[in-house]
Simulated scan of single mutants.
Amino acid sequence: MELKALDGKQSARVDMEKVPLFMTKSPDHIDPDASPALAALAAIIHEETTPDDKVEYYKEQGNALYKKATRDELKKAVIMYSEGLSVPDAVNMQLRATMYLNRAAANIQLGNNRAALADTTLAKKTDPANIKTYARAAKACLALGQHTEGIQWCDEGLALDATNKPIQEERVKLVKAQGEAQRKQRMEAKRLREVAAQETRIHAAILNRNIKMKAHPMHEEEEQKAAAEAAASGASASDPSPVASIANDANNKGTAQAVKLFRLENPSGVKPTLNEDGSLCWPVFFLYPEYEQSELVSSFHEQATIGEQMENMFPDDAPPAPWDSNKFYTRHDALEVFFEEQLPANAKSGTIPKLVRVSKSKPLLQVLADPRYVVIGGTPTFVVLSSQSPFRAKYLSRTK
Score class of each variant (00 low, 15 high):
286 F>D: 00
307 G>R: 15
291 Y>R: 10
222 E>A: 11
309 Q>V: 14
217 P>R: 10
309 Q>E: 07
290 E>A: 13
292 E>F: 13
267 P>F: 13
311 E>Q: 15
310 M>G: 12
244 A>W: 11
212 K>W: 05
290 E>C: 06
245 S>N: 08
298 S>D: 09
270 V>Y: 07
266 N>Q: 11
295 E>L: 09
268 S>W: 11
270 V>R: 01
252 N>C: 14
286 F>A: 05
277 D>N: 06
247 A>R: 10
227 A>W: 06
218 M>N: 01
224 Q>P: 04
255 T>D: 09
214 K>Y: 15
248 N>G: 02
286 F>H: 09
300 F>P: 07
310 M>I: 15
258 A>S: 08
309 Q>F: 13
234 G>K: 11
310 M>H: 14
231 A>F: 02
302 E>C: 07
219 H>R: 00
214 K>E: 03
250 A>K: 07
311 E>P: 15
231 A>H: 04
276 E>C: 05
284 V>Y: 01
247 A>V: 08
271 K>T: 13
226 A>P: 04
238 S>W: 00
265 E>L: 13
304 A>D: 05
305 T>M: 11
281 C>G: 06
263 R>K: 02
303 Q>S: 05
308 E>H: 06
307 G>C: 14
310 M>C: 10
245 S>T: 10
292 E>I: 06
292 E>S: 13
309 Q>G: 01
250 A>M: 07
212 K>H: 15
294 S>C: 13
301 H>R: 05
230 A>D: 01
310 M>W: 15
280 L>G: 00
218 M>W: 14
211 I>R: 07
311 E>Y: 14
214 K>H: 15
305 T>N: 07
287 L>F: 08
302 E>I: 10
275 N>E: 00
263 R>H: 05
295 E>Q: 13
221 E>F: 07
237 A>K: 03
310 M>P: 09
282 W>M: 01
292 E>Y: 12
253 K>A: 10
278 G>W: 10
308 E>L: 10
277 D>P: 02
214 K>P: 10
239 D>F: 07
305 T>I: 14
244 A>Y: 08
301 H>I: 00
262 F>D: 01
253 K>C: 00
223 E>G: 04
252 N>S: 09
235 A>P: 03
251 N>L: 09
215 A>S: 13
242 P>W: 03
221 E>R: 11
293 Q>H: 09
264 L>Y: 15
212 K>G: 07
212 K>S: 14
303 Q>G: 02
213 M>C: 07
290 E>S: 02
286 F>M: 12
267 P>Q: 11
278 G>Q: 01
225 K>H: 11
262 F>N: 10
211 I>N: 02
266 N>P: 12
285 F>Q: 07
251 N>V: 14
283 P>W: 00
304 A>S: 05
259 V>K: 04
301 H>D: 01
295 E>D: 14
276 E>N: 08
260 K>N: 01
246 I>H: 00
281 C>F: 05
233 S>D: 12
252 N>T: 12
217 P>L: 04
243 V>H: 00
308 E>M: 10
251 N>P: 06
269 G>M: 15
266 N>Y: 15
212 K>A: 11
258 A>C: 10
233 S>A: 13
261 L>K: 12
256 A>G: 08
237 A>S: 08
248 N>I: 06
258 A>N: 06
